[in-house]
Amino acid sequence: MLIDDLPCDILYHFCKYLSFIDIINTSQTCKRLYILIEKDDYFWMLLIKNNFGPKLYQRYVYEIFQNRKNSDYALYHTEKDKRKFEKRLRKHEPKNVCNFWLLNMLDCKDNSDGYIAYNSIVKQKSHPRTNDINMSLTIEEFIEYYLNKTKTLTKKDLSQISLYKLIYFYLIESKRLLGVDMFGIYIRCSKDHFSCTNSITENQEYDSSSSTGRCVRLYSDFTCYQAGIKGKFKSILPGVYEIICRIKLDKNDEYLAYFNQECCKDDSVKELMGCYFYALADHGLDCERNHETLNYDWFESNYILHGNTNWFNETMGKIKIFELSDIYFGFTIKREYRYRNILFDYIELNIVD
């Protein structure tokens, strides 16, 4: 039996078990498979349903493109809202943009976008203007997203590609940022906010077991305050995302004497250490994990479980996005006097239903 004689259902079933690269290679083997894979929307819709389940299939094939756009009023994004939030930001002294961890994390030194997003979320939670906020995306926004992402494709090129193939590719692609590509959050900078480079170069180190052979070591004390790292995922589509950090724990014996010295002064120092993670979307909600869970007990139990040689994935929570958004995030460690360290490999977003 020739491949041209096989019904489409058989070919669909066969391709269901192939990787994305294998599917593309299969499409180049003959005209029948090329037409089936490259020109048939139903083929990609079926793959989305088979690989991601009915809920995500419904969301990304139908709902987000059919839902009406949310009003700026509902999201606290009117021009009046923005002016109000920007005025509030200008009340901070320039040096405080670095001295306040949240303002530093949101890049308020460079622009007010993150600060506006933060205040919008606070207002949505405390005084919602509507209970009906949808996940929505126009096809034009989706095409523009790919134009900005690829740089080499034109609108004409994209018009030749199945919309559902582009959706499938978005769903399977990795959404990951490496620790070495992020920025440091230094609470201490010069009085007038000059010479504040936010560089983490000196805290990068080689680790052959990390994903790229390099990672970032996080620590803090009162003489050299490395408060954490920050970063931003750009242009994330509407949906619910689980935030996962790949980390490793270490006890730096070089600072054990210093740590013990501080413990002698105040015995409570021994169990004071804590971490804090925060993320927000500029058209969505936020995700927070504080020192009540990322604390001394968390560190010690994971250190016993994983030691100082094994990486592990720590789930920080979920974040909900209503419209095409950037996601700001930051991770900090404090009060561990350089003794208890966290090595940071990467952070990634996983689409969940």
Rank of each mutant, 00 (worst) to 15 (best):
I3V: 14
D4V: 15
D4E: 08
P7E: 10
T26Q: 06
T29G: 03
K31V: 12
I37Y: 07
I37A: 02
D41V: 04
F43I: 07
M45G: 03
I48P: 01
I48K: 01
N51Q: 06
P54Y: 13
L56S: 11
Y60E: 11
N67G: 01
H77Y: 13
H77D: 05
D81F: 09
K84Q: 06
F85T: 01
E86I: 06
L89S: 02
K95C: 13
L102E: 00
M105C: 04
D107S: 10
D107Q: 10
K109R: 11
S112G: 08
I116S: 06
S120M: 02
S120Y: 05
I121Y: 06
K123N: 14
H127E: 12
D132T: 09
M135Q: 03
S136W: 06
E140M: 04
E141H: 12
Y146S: 05
L147F: 07
N148M: 09
K149V: 04
T150Y: 12
K151E: 11
T152E: 14
K156P: 04
L163S: 09
Y164F: 15
K165W: 11
F169W: 06
K175H: 15
G179Y: 02
V180I: 11
Y186G: 08
D192C: 15
H193E: 09
C196S: 05
S199C: 08
Q204I: 05
Q204H: 14
S208T: 07
S210C: 04
S210T: 05
S211L: 11
S211M: 06
T212G: 08
G213F: 01
R214A: 02
Y219P: 03
T223N: 14
T223W: 10
A227D: 13
G231K: 00
K232G: 03
K232E: 05
F233S: 02
S235D: 09
V240M: 04
Y241T: 12
I244C: 02
I244G: 01
I247W: 00
N252Y: 10
E254L: 11
E254H: 14
Y255C: 04
Y255G: 02
L256H: 09
L256Q: 13
A257P: 04
E262N: 14
D267W: 15
L272H: 07
G274D: 03
G274T: 03
G274I: 01
A281L: 00
G284F: 00
R289P: 07
H291I: 12
E292R: 14
T293E: 08
T293L: 10
L294S: 07
N295S: 08
D297G: 12
D297C: 15
F299S: 14
F299C: 15
F299P: 07
N308G: 11
F312I: 14
F312C: 11
M316L: 08
I319N: 00
E323A: 13
E323M: 09
G330A: 03
T332F: 00
R335A: 15
R335C: 11
Y337S: 10
R338Q: 11
Y339N: 13
D345K: 06
Y346K: 02
E348V: 01
L349Q: 04
N350Y: 03
N350S: 12
N350E: 14
N350L: 05
